[in-house]
Amino acid sequence: MARLALITGGTRGIGAAVARALKDAGHPAVVNYHADEACADAFTDETGIPALKWDVSDGEACRAGVEAIEAEHGPVEILVNNAGTVADNKFENMTDDQWQRVVRVNLDSVFYMSKAVYPGMMERGWGRIVQIGSMNGQAGQLNQVNYVAAKAGMHGFTKALAQEGAKHGITVNTVAPGYVDTYLMRNMPERITQKIIDKSPIRRMGYEDEVAHAVLFLVDDKAAWTTGSTITMNGGTHMY
């Protein structure tokens, strides 16, 4: 069954792969993005997937964004909270602003976006919410107290909302990828990416498509009994 899907941060990296995969699986997709208009235009030209611009850390903007999408395309039945940002720094050097920005974009956005789509999902008795968590939210990482706290918080959010959504046919799950070969990683110094690869039993980074594959699994009609779960995919780097 075709379900309208909304992916935040969906014009680049993992989010773009998720949007493409959902579209290929027959789900009409709409993506959100925040800053890079040229990238968003190119993505829409190539895929035909509409891209709407708003800041997911702004609750009012999230409500308005969802309203605009639902007015044009119908109810959002699948929400993928993928938008994320990093602002790495040693704890002693991390500024209030670096903390706030990462927690707001990565975690507050999950609250705002889920809140905007949840009442409709409840009413219709069906919904799928998938968070893109992170291995670093499970295992911790130096220079990332902000990112790790936000991603770990996502996992807590998932489990709590899963409890509430269960009786309404809404599942809430998380995919927790390890290091994935995205534009973010390609900007890192090679000696660091090589270290990451050496630490991974599979000896490579993940591919964006592999994360998308897990999202597809979770949003399926048949995945109704899987809720509050985390699918970890990290090539064996972190097993818990």
Partner: peptide, 25 residues
């Protein structure tokens, strides 16, 4: 069964050492 299918697929090769819980929450 569908979780097993997911994990045994040829293209699931980056998922290892993982546990998928399927327990209705």
């Amino acid at each position: 069964a569908r979780a097993v299918l997911f994990l045994t697929a040829d293209d699931a090769d980056f998922i290892t050492g993982s546990t998928i819980s399927v327990n209705g929450g």
